[in-house]
Design a protein around this nucleic acid. Structure first.
Lengths: 353, 353
DNA sequence: TTGAAAGCGCTACCAG
DNA sequence: CTGGTAGCGCTTTCAA
């Protein structure tokens, strides 16, 4: 009878082998099995080997859900970003994942499509799944209230590619101000004096613009005299933003793009208009994604250490798990100017338009 | 005394609110709280509202680990691939993730770096974390023994971008044979009669080559007379493979690449050698990644529905969770030829070399 | 060196 | 409509 019931259950859902099953087969207690499996050394080598052998035979797979419940620790971290398929995020994710797997952590991934409400929902879900820590790339919920809420969850978190002035908020980001400055400086040094801007309308994007402005101010030039068209960090939107720039009568000059994808979109617009790079337009991007050297015109850009940001972000998080009371780190990595043909310094020549 | 102990514990590790805490505050049983939270409707609207209000006030977050243990169901699926930062995989992952989040599933991600042993380890780890199902992109452990082992784990799984002849193995892939055929046909129709191959040495890559061969056989041509250099699906390795092709005296003709990244590498080699596309070499890739239209020479390629493969793979998996005994699906999606400038049909002209 | 008991937070089942 | 009891698989604690 009892056996029959069990059989029915077995058919409905396969019952994996448990520690108890092993204990029974091995003729020891569940405790000893647990000790053996976790190599806790409080039992004789003989019984240990015996237990391990049986575990192997039965192809035992520990139930990490039960273990997590008991230990209040999942060995899983949550990673939240807007779109894991975008170059920058995918490299960031790779950095995180590779470091995580080295230390036996798993990654629970959530995309937010740049929606703040989805970000908050994702955070709640992951916290309910009891991740040990949280990495949020380019977070949107960063106001005082958002941070308070995040802190109240009592889960260690680190921001990636985003700075924060708030106390107790750790982050790893690149120096966008410096990056913008470097880019603008380079454009200026090509001899170009007419500029256009296709920035991203985000905190990072604005910081980059600030960097541009800072440089120009040093030359006693106001950035206000130049046309600006904001863009989402996507090819399609960069394409449209560049069209608007053209429509405003901007027919030649140097264009400072918020990221490489925007630069690709701008490049498309420029060629469609039968204008050329670097003759009519010089173009600079941001990120230095893999394809920058292989584009129709190799793209000058500001490289940020995307992969490295992931790696260091993960370490920050793990470090906090180990030492909850260690000081908070705010890490800013240096960007680097990479000059390619899209800002070639060849002397200005005959110009169309 | 007892209180003191608790305080110490509270400092060491924050104890989240539980259903029991809510029950106590609300003056009801844990059962009722559970029923209220899960909207199981076996209690009066009044008490329900009362409970929900308290849950809200205390900012209760359900412990999904406990729930998972109890229900033997995690609402999490595992996704395994070699490198989530590679274009094809990142788009695949996006497709999976977006579908998953729609249905309240989370993604546990693992990269394998193309190593079979890491793939097997990843599978074991995810199964131990009690994922409800598994999606494996371009799996390596696909021999009879591997499949038997996978099946013995009793976790539903679906292969992505990989076919399998074995019974009970579901997959979603594109028709690589057809893709290779289409590509070869196109190259042939440009009038070119000299061919070179830079295939990927993988099952998919070989299928694509088979497709090429099939077409050539129809023209009574043996593929054996043309040079072949295998490559990993990476820019750097494509670059080297193309160098080997040049070194073998292949100075002009049409090159069939195993994927777009290889084509990018080949393109680099070709330009470094001061040769040109499509004059000296015609080039065709596979995948149609985002940047194909914006490369130094816009790349002709075979488009595979990468994102869609992720979407359909997820649905297959979910479908099996709902109906474990439904028939097994083997889904093959059609690829599509996308013609761009790298195989431009302009008449053959003066040739270097 | 080994084992028994208790409990992590939740829900299924049954009784009232 | 409501609550008590038991148990998911594991580990911690204490006792033998």
């Amino acid at each position: 009878m009892d056996k029959n019931e069990k059989d029915v259950f077995m058919k409905a859902r396969i019952k994996p082998i448990t520690i108890k099953d092993l204990a029974e087969k091995a003729g020891v207690s569940a405790m000893s099995v647990s000790n053996a499996l976790n190599n806790r050394g409080r039992l004789s080598e003989g019984t240990k080997r015996h237990i391990m052998k049986i575990a192997q035979e039965l192809n035992y797979m520990p139930n990490l859900v039960a273990k997590s419940l008991r230990k209040a620790q999942t060995r899983t971290i949550g990673v939240i970003m807007s779109d894991s398929s975008q170059y920058v995020f995918s490299k960031l994710l790779l950095g995180i994942e590779q470091e995580a797997s080295k230390t036996g952590y798993s990654i629970l991934l959530a995309n937010t499509d740049q929606k703040k409400d989805l970000e908050i929902k994702a955070i709640d879900l992951l916290v309910s799944k009891r991740i040990d820590g949280l990495l949020i790339a380019a977070p949107l919920a960063v106001g005082e209230g958002d941070i308070e809420r995040l802190k109240s969850l009592k889960v260690p978190f680190v921001f990636l590619m985003r700075t924060s002035e708030f106390e107790g908020v750790e982050f790893v980001a690149n120096d966008n101000l410096q990056g913008g400055y470097l880019g603008m400086k380079h454009l200026y040094e090509t001899g170009e004096r007419n500029f256009g801007f296709l920035p991203i309308d985000s905190p990072s994007g604005r910081k980059r613009m600030e960097g541009c402005e800072k440089f120009l101010l040093g030359k006693n030039v106001s950035i206000k005299k130049y046309p600006i068209e904001s863009s989402l960090p996507q090819i399609g939107d960069g394409y449209l933003a560049m069209k608007r720039l053209l429509a405003r009568g901007f027919r030649n000059g140097a264009i400072c793009c918020g990221c490489d994808l925007i630069a690709v979109g701008a490049l498309k617009t420029i060629f469609e208009a039968n204008l050329s790079i670097p003759e009519d337009f010089r173009l600079i991007g941001y990120d230095d994604f893999d394809m920058a050297p292989y584009l129709r015109v190799p793209l000058t850009t500001i490289r940020q250490p995307t992969y490295q940001i992931g790696v260091e972000g993960f370490h920050l998080l793990i470090n906090r798990l180990d030492q909850p009371d260690s000081p908070y780190h705010k890490i800013i990595l240096e960007p680097e100017l990479i000059v390619r043909n899209s800002t070639n310094k060849k002397p200005l020549q005959e110009r169309h338009g």
